[in-house]
């Protein structure tokens, strides 16, 4: 193979990847717009929305709560290890509060819920695709995007901020338990320091991030499930793609939102 052939082949492979990326972006954009257009067109399915709120929000609480608790506790240990007793009494509550509320709370909750929910949504809708349940919905005069996709995406969008609000409190409590129980910090001073360092921007950014991550993980689960290939392999692939794309997009969106807020 001569050099020219190699270079052309290399450039062609880059071109193919870029085209594939643009095609996928276009498909996701169309899917998103079509889904969102149903939000302003009745009929609505509040029962489906409620069911999804329960699954995505309420049943994710233990996973998100445990993640936040251990992260807050580990963060307190790390900060204490890096500073002396006196400096740590100031540092631990402030860094735990800022770290949890601004970054770790929304990001870890987003990633944990992506693993739990995005995959479950993709598997459920993918199985419905493979077993013709989605075609059946169409023949029963029910739009699958309106009945299946919109309630899941909206429920993720609404449930994540609620989950993250709880996760933030639990994460801070994890730090508090270690600081007060293990290091013997003053409980009143710890709480005061924590409250002093949590400002409105931190809370708003945390909730905006959570809503964005919720939208991403719900949408990715639905998109990959809805476009699932045939058979068990197709559904498995859709599930993997849902988790991977949700996680990467959550991390990318986190960077963009952090840049925008701070």
């Amino acid at each position: 193979m001569n050099l020219a052939t190699f270079v052309i082949g290399f450039l062609a492979s880059i071109g193919r990847s870029v085209l594939a990326l643009l095609t996928a972006t276009g498909r996701v954009a169309l899917f998103t717009l079509e889904t969102l257009s149903h939000a302003v067109r009745p009929p609505y399915y509040p029962g489906e929305f409620g069911k999804q709120m329960l699954t995505i929000g309420y049943f994710s609480l233990p996973v998100v709560g445990m993640t936040a608790l251990f992260t807050g506790a580990a963060l307190a240990l790390q900060i204490k290890a890096g500073g002396g007793q006196v400096a740590s009494e100031q540092l631990v509550p402030s860094v735990v509060a800022i770290g949890i509320v601004r970054e770790l709370g929304p990001v870890l909750a987003g990633l944990m819920v992506a693993g739990r929910i995005s995959s479950a949504i993709a598997a459920e809708i993918g199985t419905m695709r493979v077993t013709e349940q989605i075609d059946a919905l169409t023949t029963l005069s029910t739009d699958p995007l309106k009945y299946l996709v919109l309630p899941r995406v909206l429920a993720s969008l609404v449930a994540l901020p609620l989950l993250v609000a709880v996760a933030n409190v639990i994460g801070i409590m994890g730090g508090y338990l270690i600081a007060v129980g293990t290091f013997g910090f003053n409980p009143g001073a710890y709480i005061k320091n924590t409250l002093d360092y949590i400002d409105t921007v931190s809370v708003v950014s945390s909730l905006v991030k959570a809503g964005t991550f919720g939208f991403i993980l719900g949408l990715m689960g639905c998109y990959h499930g809805y476009n699932s290939g045939r058979g068990a392999l197709g559904v498995g692939q859709a599930t993997t793609n849902a988790v991977v794309s949700s996680s990467i997009l959550i991390l990318a969106a986190n960077y963009a939102l952090t840049q925008a807020f701070f």
Binding site: P43, T131, E132, Q133, D135, A136, T139, L140, S141, T142
Partner: peptide, 25 residues
């Protein structure tokens, strides 16, 4: 009305809810 090859019944709904799916709409 359509009968699908595999039935295509909605797993998350009970039998009567499947049958009455369109009747409720």
């Amino acid at each position: 009305g359509m009968l699908f090859q595999g039935g295509a019944l909605f797993d998350s709904l009970t039998v009567w809810q499947n049958v009455a799916f369109r009747l409720r709409r």
